[in-house]
Every structure is written in structure tokens, then in C-alpha cells.
Design a protein around this nucleic acid. Structure first.
Length: 257
DNA sequence: AACCCACACAACCGCAAAAAA
DNA sequence: ATTTTTTGCGGTTGTGTGGGT
């Protein structure tokens, strides 16, 4: 009743973020009042799930992700939440949007030109999508944990190049979600295998320690599970913290570490 | 410069399922 | 067992932006 609609302001994001960090996830219907938001619980939930929650991966879909979406859509239909579970860091809404605005047309076109349906793989058909996708074939998506050539790096360019954007939530997850001070410490110790707490951090394969990235520490659970860590690396959201990108969405973290 | 169009993406809406009372 | 509330999902709409005319 009398709840605000439309785009979320940075202030609203911060209120929601701060509330959930402090109280965790419980009853969404109670969140707006307790967080001081003139939104309904449903809107808060959506904002958190699709935008603020930890682990979200932004930016272009990789060729592998595209193929996964295409294959699973053919298999499961429009069960976006199920499809999204196969795409770590992607939300059902994001997958759905990507399908509706881009993949569906491409698949339709491929089917029309090849009625036998042999051209569903993104790797073997011409990319007919928007310029954004043509400029940087997503097959060039680099796992930042294993490739850290940031020579001439620009955060904005990196986003266009398909490197994952790292959001506030990623930092928290990488940091174990404890505090901004701890996060600052992690970010000030880039490219080390471990930080002073013995947490696992990212490292460039060539051993470089240039100033662009920040190694991301893992929570205790991750430390105990190297396989899980590897899985996260492969999934592409082993966190490298590109400051400019982080600040894009981390207004209250816009500070020097 | 102004307008139109296509696109990307955030957010809303309605419904159904699940959980709680 | 029934009703109410909450949550999750998919379809759809709204808005901002960039390119073309």
C-alpha cells in the first residue's frame, strides 16, 4: 500500500543491502518497514535476487553460457529458474531477458536457415546479435583467476570485453561477508595466494602483481574445499576486484583501500 | 537538432505453490 | 483440514540509451 515503484535509487539499494547484511534473509514482507523503504516486500526480494545478492555475474554471456541456455531452453522450455541454476552467477530474469532479446531471434533464424536444426551451437553459427556481442566474441571470455593480463586495462573496457563485473555482493562473498574493514584488507593485498588470515586469494598465472586486481579471499568453508574453490574459478566468478567496476555499484565503498 | 526506432535490461504483475497460522 | 500469508516463477511492460535518418 502506497509503496514506491520504478527504478531503485542508490540510497534504497544501500538501505536494503545494509538491512540484509545486518539481519540476514528472513521475511520479505517485513523488510520494507524495518529497512526504512517505501517498497513492498516483493520488490525488495526481486531487487536483492536480481541485483544485490552475492555472486552475481554481470556482463556478456560467454559462448558456453549461450550454448547452455540454448540447449536447456530446447530441453526444458521457458523454465528460466531451472536454466539459471546451470549458469552460476546468472539470474533467471537475466537469462530470460537475454533469451527474449537476443537468443530467441538467433535460434529462430538458425532454424529457418537450417530446418534440420543442426545450427544451434553458438560456436558454429554466425553471430547475428547486437554490436555488443559481435565486437567481442564471448568465446574469448577469460576466467580472471587463470588469466590476468591487464596490460592497458580499463575497467569499463574490461566490462565490454566480457570480463565479469564484480559487484558489491561479490566482494562480500569473497570476503566472507564480515566487514568492510576486512574487505579493505583483502583488496589491499592483491594477487597473493593467501592473506594474513590464511585465506585463499586469487593469483595471476604469470605471477604478476599489478595494481588492478584484488585477490579474493574465501570463507572458511571454501578454504576447506579446494574442489569447491576450483569450481568457482571455472565458473568465472572467482573474484577479481576491479575497483572501478566495484565502485559502479558500491557507492558506500567508494573509498581508498 | 529533432525525431524515430531498436535494443537492453530493470521492474511490475498475476498466478501457483509452499509454508505458516 | 482450511484459510491466510509468503515466496517463487514466468510473462510482460516501462524506461533509458544509442544509432540512424
Amino acid at each position: 500500500m502506497n509503496s514506491k515503484k520504478g527504478l531503485w535509487s542508490p540510497d534504497e539499494d544501500q538501505r536494503l543491502r545494509a538491512y540484509i547484511l545486518k539481519h540476514g534473509l528472513s521475511c520479505w514482507s517485513a523488510v520494507p518497514a524495518e529497512a526504512g523503504l517505501r517498497r513492498n516486500g516483493k520488490s525488495c526480494r526481486l531487487r536483492w535476487i536480481n541485483y544485490l545478492r552475492p555472486g552475481l555475474k554481470r556482463g556478456n554471456f560467454s559462448a558456453e553460457e549461450e550454448e547452455t541456455v540454448i540447449n536447456l531452453q530446447a530441453k526444458l522450455g521457458n523454465r528460466w529458474s531451472q536454466i539459471a541454476t546451470h549458469l552460476p552467477g546468472r539470474t533467471d530474469n537475466e537469462v530470460k531477458n537475454y533469451w527474449n532479446s537476443y537468443l530467441k531471434k538467433r535460434v529462430t533464424k538458425a532454424q529457418n536457415s537450417d530446418p534440420h536444426g543442426s545450427a544451434t551451437s553458438s560456436s558454429d553459427c554466425t553471430n547475428q546479435g547486437p554490436v555488443k556481442h559481435e565486437e567481442e566474441p564471448s568465446s574469448q571470455m577469460i576466467s580472471p583467476a587463470t588469466h590476468v593480463d591487464t596490460g592497458g586495462f580499463s575497467p569499463k573496457l574490461a566490462a565490454l570485453n566480457g570480463l565479469p563485473r564484480v559487484l558489491f555482493g561479490d566482494c562480500l562473498q569473497a570476503n566472507g561477508g564480515d566487514s568492510l574493514d576486512d574487505l579493505g584488507e583483502v583488496m589491499s593485498n592483491p594477487w597473493h595466494n593467501t592473506n594474513s588470515h590464511g585465506e585463499v586469494c586469487g593469483q595471476a598465472t604469470d605471477g604478476t602483481t599489478n595494481g588492478y586486481g584484488g585477490g579474493a579471499s574465501m570463507s572458511g568453508e571454501m578454504q576447506a574445499q579446494p574442489e569447491a574453490l576450483l569450481q568457482i574459478q571455472e565458473n568465472g566468478f572467482f573474484d577479481i576486484l576491479f575497483p572501478g567496476l566495484v565502485y559502479d555499484r558500491m557507492d558506500f565503498c567508494d573509498r581508498e583501500f
